[in-house]
């Protein structure tokens, strides 16, 4: 299943999802296209955070 958004005949974004029965999981894909003549891509702010998680009777072990 997918959807493609177009403007001026050009692809602005495309989002799709496909199911993998053997893994019981989905693969989701998103494409955002740069179209200088229609809607140019101005900026992308990407932030990557790293988080330590602790669950269970001795969560401090996971936090070392």
């Amino acid at each position: 299943m997918s959807y493609t958004a177009r403007a001026g005949g050009l692809v602005i974004y495309k989002v799709s999802v496909s199911f993998i029965p053997t893994r019981n999981q989905y693969i989701t894909r998103l494409e955002i296209h740069n179209n200088p003549g229609v809607i140019p891509l101005g900026s992308l702010r990407l932030n990557h955070a790293q988080v330590q998680i602790g669950i269970g009777d001795a969560p401090e072990n996971a936090l070392r």
Binding site: G42, A49, V51
Partner: peptide, 15 residues
Amino acid sequence: TLRVGFDLVSLYGSG
């Protein structure tokens, strides 16, 4: 123009 912001969050540790 298109401005996009996206955050990735990596989780470490299992329990």
